[in-house]
Design a protein around this nucleic acid. Structure first.
Length: 963
DNA sequence: CTGATTTAGTCTGCTTTGCGATGG
DNA sequence: ACCATCGCTTTGCAGACTAAATCA
């Protein structure tokens, strides 16, 4: 690329652009325009991601520093560019579009793979500089007429240009998508939870569980420690594999996973839940609902931009990272993958490369990101060759034997998958159901170019999470179990058990691990008994970080409300009180118990399978006595979560206090907010005292409070005085000019504590108290003077006027019309005592009005009929007198002879038949000369519809509606 | 690298009580 | 001459909010 630029520059100097223009000026101009347009479009299309802007800046920088001897002279740089176009125009590169494609292919598929970052920048510069190209003019220098393109915009403005923010519509859409996604994930969670209750699966799990493990749980008080051996056993016996492409129900997938002892993270987590439930432990299936972002840009734009614009040049140098690992990816390129990633993933990647000595080791680290437990358990990996390679590619690394595709096929597959993942992001709203799986398998939609952050948390880094090198959300904890341990915490508590990763009671680690994998733990939901409960508080310590990413809590609570009931019923709640009804919430427990006890046990089952039978019975016995206990279990958990909500640690950064639900810093209050009372101080953040959010009061003007039906107490001084907006100031200044007062530019604000209920003057002697404009401002019912009533009826003022009752127009608000706000009136305000009289009179008046209107309408209708028929008659007369031979035959036929029905002056109703006949049955008159005669005795009259049917002896009939 | 601050762009909510021309 | 009706150009701006850029 660089050499091309150089040669272009030199050859450009030699070439005489004038000659080109002379020969082919049209095409050159066209081509230039086209090329510039195309590039501008491309740049515009790049969207607004930070990465992009960085690129653009780099481009500008490289232009400024002037690589290739173009010494920081914009013009020279541009010259090079233009002469290239000249060359192109001469056919060295057929057309501007061809430039693009050459660049893309060369840079993307081969060059980018081998060349350095610098050269990549070079390519970018070639692209980007055009985006800020302006008009074309002659270059004054060199005595050669060259085409020169100058910057008509400053680099700054060009840099800012791509910033585009989401519109309200996009935000709304994103929120909808988010909600739908959440619902789908909830549904998915319920499906999994239900599958975990399957008695066959539970029995099978028990059958393979060593006897000594099931016996360890005999204690009445269960401790978290007791679960460790189980988790350990599970971890050692079940292996995570990449997604199974087969489409099948989750239940059958679970069976399959059980049979093969390997499955997706989701399936294995479900199996662990089933195992615990089989052991009669109160167990929930817990999942992070990693829904699409509620903000429009977070996922969409980023992924879209990066996927679409970077795809062409970035696929192959990172494909091993990004794609859902076909089996033999990692076989040949060991060192290349290492060096390659150094380029791509920059420093952090380098660090991890360095830290690992042998290549196979580093390969393992890079090609995927193992969850913490996996790294911890490296030793065990050796012991169990195929296990603990939890993540997809890791698994694949070990399974080199599978298949052997040609490199081309492989690349094609990768490309296909990239395209599909990009598409999946683009139409996020359509992929809800698949998301969870894709997350669990490998959510590889994010760009590998994304700078990788180092682990935020030393805990996770010490455990060796490889921080989702080049991609995110891989290895993130998404599913686990919660087992209720009665022996914990005096009162008992739900204990986090991630058997897949062999972690017990690691609730504090979840957030860090998820963070490290760029998964937000916005929604952590526990499923049981087809119900669900939001337990995010247990796993999320920094609520303020996720609060804005969560959906409106009212909506979320409403969605979860029925599910919570089911859940609390299943994990031991009030629902047990109605046990005889066997409602849906505890039905599954019965199913489990009965299913297990009815299950014909194979002979080879270990002795421990007797346990469920017993405990099944015990469970039934217990359940009646468990009610009170179970109810408190839920309330205790609720209290625990609530306590966490109220005792969130103080954030360390100031901005977190801006919208924090618990704490506030005076600095971040808005103009209309104040601290009252100003205390207690809960702590300090960078020197600023932190107050409870409850101390923040909203201030309003007197007038504003009036609308709320409140008035400021006497002798209250404004709590805060702020400057008034310019527009108002002008108005007031003009009014106050004479006085020269200085206090006109301020607004006095009062707080809630300075108010009392509005006390308006009472209505006396049937007189409505009015304001200075002779009206009553009815912002709400509270604004009505005592003893008055608001009648919102149209034209009611007329009645009041007629009855000579005192009233005031009710102004209910303002609306903007013709550029100014005009008051909106709706009804009147009258004293209570006149209400009935007015309503009665109004009803009468309206009745009379309706009758009048009806009468008027009828009269109008008759008059219009008369006019119409008169005009027809006139027309006919004219035709008879002057229209012979000029009229179409069909009209002639009917009109030639004096028509007894129409021609004679008759009342409108009787004349209509002729018209109707003409309008309704033109074909009759068209075809023959027969003149219909409607005899009176052949007529019939329908009273209901007022329709008269007239019949001619020829069989023709016509219906006439009579008025 | 992180957090604070600045900058810039978008959205939302507040504002708040005609008037001249024309035709009947 | 008077009165009722019609149509007019249409907010426009401040501040909140958000995200990127920049600074420390």
């Amino acid at each position: 690329m660089r050499t091309r630029s150089n040669s272009k520059q030199s050859s450009g100097k030699e070439s005489t652009a004038s000659a080109i223009r002379d020969v082919d000026s049209e095409s050159l101009a066209d081509m230039s325009n086209e090329a510039v347009d195309k590039l501008v479009r491309r740049v515009k299309g790049r969207g607004s991601s930070g990465k992009k802007k960085q690129d653009n800046r780099l481009q500008c920088d490289s232009a400024a520093t002037g690589e290739n001897g173009l010494k920081s002279n914009g013009k020279q740089v541009v010259d090079a560019r233009v002469t290239w176009n000249d060359l192109d125009a001469r056919g060295l590169a057929q057309d501007p579009a061809a430039n693009d494609t050459t660049e893309v292919e060369g840079g993307g598929f081969q060059t980018a793979f081998q060349e350095s970052d610098q050269e990549m920048d070079d390519i970018d510069w070639e692209d980007g500089s055009s985006s800020i190209l302006g008009h074309v003019k002659n270059h004054p220098g060199d005595g050669i007429r060259e085409v020169t393109i100058e910057f008509c915009e400053s680099p700054d403005s060009a840099k800012r240009k791509p910033i585009r923010r989401a519109t309200a519509e996009e935000k709304g859409l994103a929120e909808l998508v988010h909600k739908v996604h959440l619902l789908c994930l909830l549904a998915r969670g319920r499906i999994i939870d239900h599958a975990c209750d399957d008695p066959l699966i539970q029995a099978s799990l028990l059958s393979i569980l060593p006897a000594h493990l099931s016996n360890t749980l005999g204690d009445s008080k269960l401790h978290a420690k007791a679960l460790s051996p189980l988790a350990h056993w599970f971890h050692n016996n079940f292996h995570v594999v990449s997604s199974v492409s087969e489409k099948r129900s989750f239940h059958s997938a679970l069976s399959c996973a059980l049979e093969t002892r390997e499955g997706t993270l989701e399936e294995l987590a479900a199996l662990s839940v089933a195992l615990f439930r089989a052991l009669k432990l109160a167990t929930r299936f817990v999942s992070i609902l990693d829904a699409a972002s509620i903000k429009p840009d977070a996922d969409n734009y980023e992924s879209l931009n990066q996927d679409t614009s970077k795809m062409h040049r970035g696929i192959f140098n990172t494909s091993t990272l990004m794609v859902d690992r076909p089996k033999e990816v990692s076989i040949p390129p060991k060192s290349p993958s290492c060096s390659e990633k150094k380029n791509v993933a920059e420093t952090s990647s380098k660090a991890s490369c360095k830290s690992k000595d042998n290549c196979s080791r580093s390969k393992k680290i890079q090609s995927n990101d193992s969850p913490p437990a996996v790294e911890l358990k490296d030793n065990m990996v050796d012991a169990f060759p195929c296990e603990a390679q939890n993540n997809t590619s890791e698994e694949c690394v070990t399974k080199k034997s599978q298949g052997s595709k040609r490199k081309g096929d492989l690349e094609f597959e990768m490309q296909l998958q990239m395209a599909m993942s990009a598409t999946a992001v683009a139409i996020q709203s359509n992929k809800e159901l698949d998301v969870k799986e894709s997350n669990s398998n490998s959510s590889d939609v994010s760009s590998p170019f994304k700078r990788i952050r180092k682990n935020a948390n030393e805990e996770s880094s010490s455990q060796g999470i490889s921080t989702a090198l080049g991609s995110r959300k891989i290895g993130s904890p998404l599913y686990w179990a919660e087992v209720y341990c009665s022996g914990e915490n005096l009162t008992g508590k739900w204990v986090h058990v991630d058997a897949v990763h062999d972690i017990v009671d690691g609730e504090q680690k979840v957030e860090a691990a998820a963070d490290a994998c760029k998964t937000s733990s916005r929604y952590v939901v526990a499923f049981a008994g087809l119900g669900a409960k939001d337990v995010t508080r247990r796993y999320c310590m920094k609520w303020y970080k996720i609060a804005s990413q969560r959906v409106n809590s009212l909506w979320w609570d409403a969605v979860l409300a029925p599910l919570r009931e089911l859940e609390s019923g299943a994990t031991g709640g009030m629902a047990h009180l109605e046990k005889p009804h066997a409602d849906a919430s505890n039905e599954h427990e019965n199913v489990v118990a009965s299913g297990l006890s009815d299950l014909p046990m194979p002979n080879e089952l270990p002795s421990n399978v007797d346990l469920p039978k017993e405990s099944g019975r015990k469970n039934d016995v217990e359940s009646s006595g468990r009610n009170s206990f179970a109810a408190t279990r839920n309330t205790i958990e609720d209290m625990e979560l609530e306590t966490r909500a109220l005792t969130e640690p103080l954030p360390t950064n100031q901005q977190a206090y801006k919208n924090h639900s618990l704490y506030a810093i005076e600095k971040w209050l808005t103009k209309c907010q104040i601290l009252h009372p100003k205390g207690p101080i809960l702590g300090f953040c960078s020197g600023h005292p932190v107050y409870p959010r409850a101390c923040v009061q909203t201030l309003r003007t007197k007038e504003r409070w009036l609308r709320e039906g409140m008035q400021v107490k006497a002798k209250e001084l404004p709590a805060k005085v702020v400057k008034q907006s310019g527009k108002l100031k002008k108005v007031q200044f003009s009014e106050d000019d004479d006085y020269g007062e200085t206090d006109s530019g301020v607004v006095e604000l009062y707080g809630m504590w300075q108010l009392e209920p509005l006390q308006l003057p009472h209505a006396v002697n049937g007189i409505v108290p009015k304001n200075e404009r002779g009206q009553v401002d009815v912002w709400s019912e509270k604004c009505l003077p005592p003893g008055t009533v608001h009648l919102r009826l149209p034209r009611v003022f007329y009645v009041a006027k007629r009855l000579e009752i005192d009233y005031a127009p009710a102004m209910v608000g303002f609306e903007f019309r013709n550029g100014r706000s005009v008051p909106v009136f709706d009804g009147i305000v009258v004293c209570n005592e006149f209400k009935d009289a007015i309503l009665e009179a109004y009803a009468e008046e309206e009745e009379r009005r309706d009758a009048e209107e009806k009468k008027r309408n009828e009269a109008q209708a008759i008059s219009r009929w008369y006019q119409l028929l008169s005009s027809i008659i006139t027309r006919q007369r004219l035709n008879n007198s002057y229209g012979n031979g000029l009229m179409p035959s069909n009209v002639q036929n009917t009109n030639n002879q004096p028509d007894v029905h129409v021609g004679s002056a008759q009342p409108p109703g009787h004349q209509k038949d002729a018209k109707d006949r003409k309008l309704n049955a033109p074909s009759m008159t068209l075809t023959d000369d027969h003149e219909h005669v409607f005899l009176v005795e052949d007529q019939s009259f329908d009273e209901e519809t007022s329709t008269r049917t007239k019949r001619c002896h020829c069989g023709f009939s016509v219906q006439v509606e009579e008025l």
